[in-house]
């Protein structure tokens, strides 16, 4: 863990008058498993979108694998894979075709591509269904395919925005085992968000808690529990962010759309 593979300084994102992300700074060490936690609408996805070149920051600076996603977008794009919170598959293509498409876009050489696609589809247990159209998949199957796709090109960093949403416990455990293995054996940096606190506590070596666009706590799971004098990460989280439910506004619409898309 010699250097920081992600370095964020004073990052801000405004949508009109509304500030979704307020002046946040944090860093992620190379090879680390990092959890980015926060209530609905806290600004997690917005931050991830800025890190992954999908949104331009209003101000602040980002370094990702040694590149600035704003000024050297393509170089930065080479360094990561991503599993989005919302659906992102082409439903009119088969599972195999979605994977192929990704592999070609990321210039994975043909033989490696074929082998990795087979390996990853087997890992997410979709190999038997590789020639089915994605539109015929269940929500969980789509999610698994997206995860396999995000890993296809061997990225240095994998961003996972609520990867386990809608997955059964079996698949969730299976997924985290695989990611931890990749992390330990190949040093891939894992940056994820989740609303399952037990998951975050188990997997993440480092956690940042964001609320109303601001980072309000950082540290390991143990450190957060110690800071707040609580027993579980869930209690620590509730103590840090309060227990009122967030009004979601535009975001709840997006969520409804997502659920409709998945189920």
């Amino acid at each position: 863990m010699a250097h920081n593979i992600i370095e964020v300084k004073n990052l801000t994102k405004k949508f009109g008058d509304f500030t979704a992300v307020k002046d946040i700074s944090f860093s992620v060490a190379s090879g680390e498993r990092f959890a980015f936690l926060g209530p609905n609408g806290a600004g997690k996805s917005t931050t991830i979108k800025m890190l992954t070149t999908l949104l331009l920051p209003t101000s602040g600076s980002i370094m990702l694998g040694g590149h600035d996603p704003v000024r050297e977008a393509d170089a930065a794009r080479k360094s990561f894979g991503i599993v989005f919170q919302d659906p992102s598959l082409d439903e009119d293509l088969t599972a195999q075709e979605n994977m192929e498409f990704h592999g070609v876009l990321y210039s994975v050489p043909r033989d490696t591509r074929r082998a990795r696609i087979e390996e990853l589809l087997n890992f997410v247990e979709l190999y038997d269904r590789k020639d089915s159209f994605v539109r015929d998949f269940s929500g969980g199957m789509k999610r698994r395919l997206e995860i396999a796709r995000g890993l296809l090109h061997h990225p240095k960093i994998i961003f996972l925005d609520e990867p386990t949403l809608g997955l059964d416990p079996q698949t969730r455990n299976h997924l985290w085992q695989y990611l931890e293995k990749l992390n330990e054996e190949e040093g891939i940096t894992v940056f994820f968000t989740t609303h399952y606190m037990d998951e975050a506590d188990r997997v993440a070596q480092h956690i940042a808690v964001i609320d109303h666009g601001q980072i309000i706590a950082t540290g390991s799971g143990e450190e957060l529990k110690k800071q707040t004098g609580t027993q579980t990460l869930e209690d620590a989280f509730l103590k840090l962010t309060g227990s009122e439910i967030r009004e979601e506004g535009a975001d709840s619409l997006a969520r409804m759309r997502m659920f409709r898309g998945r189920r």
Binding site: K78, I82, L105
Partner: peptide, 10 residues
């Protein structure tokens, strides 16, 4: 949502 997949490609 598929557009995101093409937009993050290097």
């Amino acid at each position: 949502g598929f557009l995101k997949e093409t937009l993050v490609a290097p």
